[in-house]
Amino acid sequence: MSETLIKIRGLKFSRGGRVIFDNVDMDIPRTGITAIMGPSGTGKTTLLKLIGGQLRPDAGTIEVDGQNIHQLKTKDLYALRKRMGMLFQSGALLTDLSVFENVAYPIREHTKLNERMVRQLVLLKLNAVGLRGAMDLSPAELSGGMARRVAMARAIALDPMMIMYDEPFTGQDPISMGVLVKLIKSLNDALNVCSIVVSHDVYETMSIANYVYIISAGTVVEHGSPDEIRNSHSEWTRQFMEGLADGPVPFHFDAPPLLDDLFAGSGTRRG
């Protein structure tokens, strides 16, 4: 079995005339946590959707477990997706079902297990994320962090070979953030799966990642182990990692000199 689970070659993707990926190559290993980081709007979520086969690239290939995901028939794509877990930024829980039913949903859809088995599996999954006690609550009664933990339990319901996390730390308080960081790490270690964490929360992501890709402006800017990234000499990487306001990504949006603008008369430049 190959050590690489996901192989991306020459990926090109654009939307609405804007190039999002331009010739991206990536190798994501079968085990361990791979972080994909980059500023907002660089297409990190789009990349997950491309890997999951929800979007089609303009050019290039994405192979998941040796299968070119965009050449699969719907039936085969769905069979492969049963082995993928995905945690959406919002949790994407089904709002008309309880927490228990949400976690039971993929099990009921894809297995013929009896009700007793389903219940035991769901309770074990919920226990793993610490929310067994919340099984009767509805998604509307959960905090953002709890909703993501339930979504995690649902993502691991069918014991997938990989779990994709889309911005798991965004908008979380420090405690929830700590819980999510610990959970991603412990689930990855316990299940020995491939975890892909897409995030721009540098500190949290770097603390658990085994390998890091940094993408910006459609290309992979840098990749390596967290230590290699921390010691990078690239000005861009340093600005991103240290959160500096000015650098290769300028503080000012492109504009003519201030003095010229101040004496240019009234109105905006367009009008």
């Binding site: 959707k49 769905y78 997706r81 049963k82 995905m86 930024q89 919002s90 859809e109 979504a151």
Partner: peptide, 17 residues
Amino acid sequence: LMKATEQLSGMEMMAVN
């Protein structure tokens, strides 16, 4: 609203049409 809250995408990723 199901689309906006990614519930439909979530179903697709759970291999449910």
